[in-house]
Nucleic acid binder design. Sequence first.
DNA 1: TTGAAAGCGCTAACAC
DNA 2: GTGTTAGCGCTTTCAA
Lengths: 327, 327
Amino acid sequence: MANIQEVAQRAGVSVATVSRVFNNSSTVAKKTRLKVEQAIDELNYEPSVLGRNLRNSESRLLLVLIPSISNPFYSDIIRGIEDTAIGLGYNILLCETDSNPDRESIYFNLIRNRLADGIISMDPSVNKNKLIELASQYPIVQCSEFDEDSSISYVTINNELAAYHAVKHLIKIGQKKIALINSDEKFLYARERRRGYEKALNEYGLKVEADWICNTESLDFEDGKRAMRRLLDLFDRPTAVFAVSDMLAIGALKEVNSSGLRVPQDFAMIGFDKIAFSNMTHPTLTTIAQPMYKMGCISAKMIINKIQGKQVESIILDHELVIREST
Amino acid sequence: MANIQEVAQRAGVSVATVSRVFNNSSTVAKKTRLKVEQAIDELNYEPSVLGRNLRNSESRLLLVLIPSISNPFYSDIIRGIEDTAIGLGYNILLCETDSNPDRESIYFNLIRNRLADGIISMDPSVNKNKLIELASQYPIVQCSEFDEDSSISYVTINNELAAYHAVKHLIKIGQKKIALINSDEKFLYARERRRGYEKALNEYGLKVEADWICNTESLDFEDGKRAMRRLLDLFDRPTAVFAVSDMLAIGALKEVNSSGLRVPQDFAMIGFDKIAFSNMTHPTLTTIAQPMYKMGCISAKMIINKIQGKQVESIILDHELVIREST
DNA sequence: TTGAAAGCGCTAACAC
DNA sequence: GTGTTAGCGCTTTCAA
């Protein structure tokens, strides 16, 4: 593969001129530019990002940390990030952390190695202290997840209000015995969504039953199934469930279906996230939509602004109730 | 962030010695090594990958091209690639091409820019000629997809045989009217799976009905639904379907469910891929499992061998029939 | 066992 | 408008 030297030689100019042509520096005569462009074509030349980045100490690469790419929740966010970042001349390194601290440090080192210019983190169980420490030296933003007490900028939704709307919808369609399938409340969003759930119940004079609140270990289909099993085994069964994630709701739905109850006639179900699958279940799932694509776009814009030294502010976006067959 | 210079200064040695310590060169005295290691610790030094790579003209980065991260088919493969690659000192750049040639060239340029050392492509609709041209200059392997007439190494399964097994399973459980929901036959795997379908029918004296073969535009849920709708509207309806992808099968299943037919009593369904979601449907989906994780591991090993100049050979792996509720 | 120095490919400051 | 050259951070030869 040709380098800038050979192009310069072939075009009969200096390397500086070749560089100027590539960077659209205006101070190149048309004739010279033409000569150079021809040489570039002939040699099929592409500048080495390595050389350029070393010189400029930037890589134009963004790290995107996610726990698992198999979680469809992240698809649209990532598309938003990619579209925005590529438009602004940055490329994306998708990093699957598996919520594993070792995996995570590998990726953290990538930014300390200057192989990436910034990080967008969507990992809720990220090593908090390390992230905060890193954020004091390098550009970092959080998307969807965030820490209340750190100064890392974020983009997210109002989880409490969204949960409140979900539960209120169940109440409005006549449900009185509403259970909550929540994830581990070590996560901020889980605590917030629980608050929203309780707020709606209180507002309509419904009692919060401890038995009707399940906490799952993770957000998998199986967790949803298990939680639903537990609820159906209760003496005083609920007749509706608000699950804090569609995957949990889909697991719960599967369990309800298997038990012979009909949805929505005998049982109502509402999820959270509006993942693509939530429209493929039988029946389709009512859910809360987060503006994922937009969240991705904004977080990309945010991190790039931060990299370029601009001031950035955290943003809270609106959610939307999507009513489908399950309620 | 400290650089090698500062570490050398602090340790009272030359930069060459610091480099030796970092690269485990044996020719460093214990005492010197200790001094250097202390300086490294104190300054919290991490070598710049940019500098190192420029010098060595390697990046230890692998590109993984996939059409869409939201397709769960790729999850396990990618996990296999990651586990293997990270173990061998390489990091992964996940590239979503959206099957968009423009997107694709961005990533192709990354390797021409020496920002990546090799490519694992899983994109079936990749610009074939460009990929072949690139493969003549850079290390490239194909995973799952491949071209019969190119010399690019690949790892895949025997698609014809797998389809044959799927259809044979339907026949064995008494099905006689078996439809095929296939994707676009511009893809090699689609042509191969069709051959397997026809072979099984022929072997058991069942006629191949043109009406019972649907080709879909892409592999989405909606395509499966549409295809199933068409089949159910036929005067002479099939009573079983082999879909060449779980997503298509799940769409078809949804349509069957909605039409009031019961699965598996009135209608049998078999998919392909064993994506996680195929176990979450109602009823759960019988499917053909590809050894995805293993495919990932092998393709990673393969590309790294290729990068290191070793000879590599294409591999065909075994598949497995997973019988669940839908048949 | 260690150091000096060249050079990987590029950009930008400076000179002409 | 263009060329010369220093230097980004590192590894590796060569010499001591």
